[in-house]
Design a protein around this nucleic acid. Structure first.
Lengths: 337, 337
DNA sequence: GCTGGTTCTGTGCACGGTCACAGGCGACCG
DNA sequence: CGGTCGCCTGTGACCGTGCACAGAACCAGC
């Protein structure tokens, strides 16, 4: 019984103002015919008795909640490090805020979390949901698909899942930044590919491969599950072992690129003279590194905003098709390539 | 009407199982006497009709919500950069998760947000709240104080606000790390003090001052509102201008210290030989810098967990006094001092 | 004064659950 | 065989709100 024991209800307001519940309800929702006299009395009564509407009851009556969930499916470490997620959250918050919808963000950190989050989402707590960083065979998405809850994804959904989404052209952006390495005259170009269990990781590898064409060498591909600094460092060491003549590297996230940079410098390679290095994300890592990283900027904030709009559209009856929308990316040329 | 139009209710389950609502309710809540026959029929019916409990209705009847809010009051840029907030969130999520409570995090980014968040918190959506990074004269806290909602703060509350809280001994930790500079033989020790509008910032400055005692020189204090990389860089330039003979610097956050480091190196100072530098937080900045930063580790994750426990205690009827609890910090000696 | 329209207000029901209470039913006992 | 007790089940009230409907009050027109 968290709210105060004797909760103030619309009845108390009605009694204090000397009117009926219905009239109070009309005033609170600003509709229908209400006399000025009654309106003023009610507004005064609301203040004096300290009335706060009970949203649970309101939800029940209206069958809505006034809230939209943002589900982040990401292990601890990455949630902390990944700047994109924060930006997505803020972009979504901005849009929902103007629609007077409350953003509630839910972190999935284990299987038990998934189940509880699904229960939460389907339990009438939210009117819609934005799902970030879903991956292949995602239990959450499978559960969401069996719901009519208006949902939007950030990132391309896995095969077989049909939901509205916004994302970036990961393959195209990866190809563009790979092409930059080629244009700089690099002939032995490797990749540190991370997060292959989701669309972004897989697409970046595909774009890299497409850009190199026949010059693509599977021996220069190093895979890692997580996009972390340490993973980048270790992967770069492995790549140098395997192919000491490597002269260009695409690390598919800035944190990974920063780790790779450390390994390169430690191995006595000059960057970009001996090895040109590019990252992805344009996070604070990129500006912080010495040399500063050439990378790809993705409009994370806009992605969050667009996804939120997709949800709001569905709420106002505009159906959203399963076709996705791609936001533009931009290659940011700095010093590392 | 986000959930599907013809929502499956407990009545449908009762009809399908050939029993009454009351019996279904008893089975779902696992209490009272129910025959095995009825239980099995109901469990089967739940699956076949696809029943999901409506939490809004449940809340209304029980006057609870099964959720706890985490309110983060932080401008955009810092929310993205600050590793502590993410760790607090995860610590809280861990504890609440075991109590089967849903953590919902709410970001306050503008005054309009404050109002909506207060409405949300008081509207029966949550059973309790954890508030992070409140500051002096916080409209949110003032509103929360007039509520009986079980609340816990991360960080010492401002003057006049009485709420249970957990935090760290900012003054003591700042004094310890300042003392380390003194022990290294530094005589002209400056500080880049940020976030003075909240307890952490003000206390760190006070601890610094106390540690130096008579050696404290107000001319070596540079203040900045936000704890950002750029702020640290600019502040360090200012400090070097003002006092070229400075030989030790306490930057009250790692991000600020990293910025200060750039400015020092750019000015041709060797670190730590010419100027010893210490930070605060032990964030990824600290390990990433060259030289790696000497800093203070604060148990952000434990802070989140402890605050969540304070809320859960109150929910189970254990009153929490306004006295705070301090978690230990640790000076991490690396290369910068 | 009756009729009809407009403006305003009160009441009952619905939303989807929980819970207290009443009572049925069988077994056991005196 | 009647009473008591334990197990099980159904029913009605209630949580706090929104909404539809009925009807009251007022005014104007004939």
């Amino acid at each position: 019984m968290p709210p105060s024991a004797g909760r103030v209800t619309i009845r108390d307001v009605a009694a204090a103002a000397g009117v009926s519940r219905g009239t109070v309800s009309r005033v609170l929702n600003g509709e229908g015919y209400v006399s000025d006299h009654a309106r003023e009395a009610i507004e005064r009564a609301v203040r004096t008795v300290g009335y706060v509407p009970n949203t649970a009851a309101r939800n029940l009556a209206l069958n809505r909640s006034g809230a939209v969930g943002l589900v982040v499916h990401e292990p601890h470490e990455l949630f902390l490090e990944d700047p994109n997620i924060g930006a997505i959250l803020l972009g979504a918050n901005e849009v929902l805020s103007t629609a007077d919808q409350q953003l509630v963000s839910l972190v999935i950190d284990s299987e038990r979390d998934t189940e509880r989050v699904v229960r939460y989402l389907r339990g009438g707590f939210v009117d819609g949901a934005v799902v970030v960083s879903a991956r292949e065979h995602d239990a959450l998405l499978e559960a969401m698909q069996r719901t009519t809850l208006p949902t939007a994804l950030v990132g391309r959904p896995p095969q077989g899942v049909e939901m509205p989404w916004v994302g970036i052209d990961n393959a195209g952006a990866a190809a563009a930044v790979t092409q930059l390495l080629v244009d700089r005259g690099r002939r032995r170009v490797g990749i540190i590919a991370v997060g292959l269990d989701r669309d972004s990781g897989a697409d970046r590898l595909a774009g890299f491969r497409a850009a190199l064409g026949p010059a693509f060498d599977p021996g220069l591909v190093v895979e890692r599950p997580l996009y972390e600094y340490a993973a980048g460092r270790d992967a770069m060491r492995e790549l140098l072992d395997r192919a000491p003549d490597v002269d260009g590297v695409f690390a598919t996230s800035d944190a990974v690129a920063a780790g790779a940079l450390e390994a390169l410098l430690a191995a006595g390679r000059r960057v970009p003279e001996d090895v040109a290095l590019v990252g992805f994300d344009d996070s604070s890592w990129a500006r912080r590194c010495r040399p500063a990283l050439t990378t790809v900027r993705q409009p994370a904030r806009d992605l969050g905003a667009a996804a939120a709009r997709l949800v709001l559209d569905q709420l106002s009856g505009i159906p959203a098709g399963p076709e996705g929308r791609l936001l533009p990316t931009e290659v940011v040329a700095r010093d590392s390539a």
